[in-house]
Amino acid sequence: MRGNTSKINLEQLQSLVHTGAGYDLLRYYILPDLLGKEAPFLLYYMGKNLARNSNMEKLEDITEYFQQFGWGTLSVVQEKKKEILFELSGHVLEKRIQNPLLEVDFKMEAGFLAEAMKILQDVNGEGFEEVDKKKNLVVFKVVHT
């Protein structure tokens, strides 16, 4: 359990040292083994919880968190009245998608986006992801419910 209840800010994240290999093995290899068939559901809600504990004030903050978490480069593709589309790309993401050792999913990122948009726009929503292996990117849709 965390002893400090303050929110995570971008400056704190920038001071952390991390390696992608350790993170990927923990996230895609060990956690699913420990969590079993509930892993996608739990990872989604872990992402929501992470967003609730992050200090975000504007849409650009979300993209910066994605970068600092090592998730990749997030960009807004399209905004509609009841949904917003994001695209996640980058070298790290490409390596993750193409790695034969890992069965990757992006539930945590989808949960993070759903909760982040709730925080910024004060509307409930759900996040969905679709991996495009040919283009080495992930498209996220956050739908307001």
Rank of each mutant, 00 (worst) to 15 (best):
N49M: 13
A51T: 05
T19N: 15
A39K: 00
L34G: 01
K37E: 11
S89C: 01
T63F: 03
H18S: 14
Y45V: 02
Y29E: 07
Q68A: 15
L88D: 02
L31I: 06
S75I: 09
R96D: 11
R27F: 12
R52C: 01
G70E: 07
Y28G: 09
F66P: 06
I97P: 06
D24T: 10
A21K: 14
M56C: 04
L101W: 01
E64F: 00
F41A: 05
E87C: 09
T73E: 14
V77P: 10
Y65N: 04
L93I: 09
I97E: 07
N49R: 13
I84F: 06
D24H: 13
E38P: 00
L88G: 06
K48P: 00
H91W: 02
I30Y: 14
I30G: 06
K37G: 08
K48L: 00
Y29I: 01
P40R: 02
L50S: 08
Q78S: 08
M46D: 09
L31Y: 05
V76E: 11
G70M: 05
A21I: 11
V92P: 06
T19M: 12
G70Y: 07
Y65G: 05
Y45A: 03
P100C: 05
Y44N: 07
Y45I: 04
E57H: 15
W71A: 09
L26D: 03
R52L: 07
F66K: 01
E57T: 13
G22E: 12
S89K: 13
N53C: 07
E79P: 00
Q67R: 15
S89F: 05
E83K: 06
D33M: 08
R52G: 00
A21H: 10
G90H: 04
A51F: 04
I84C: 07
S75N: 14
L31G: 00
V77N: 10
M56K: 05
V76R: 04
D33R: 12
F86E: 01
G70R: 04
T63D: 10
N55K: 11
G47H: 03
G70S: 09
P100R: 02
L25E: 11
K80I: 00
L42D: 02
Y45S: 04
S54G: 02
L31V: 05
Q98C: 10
Q68R: 11
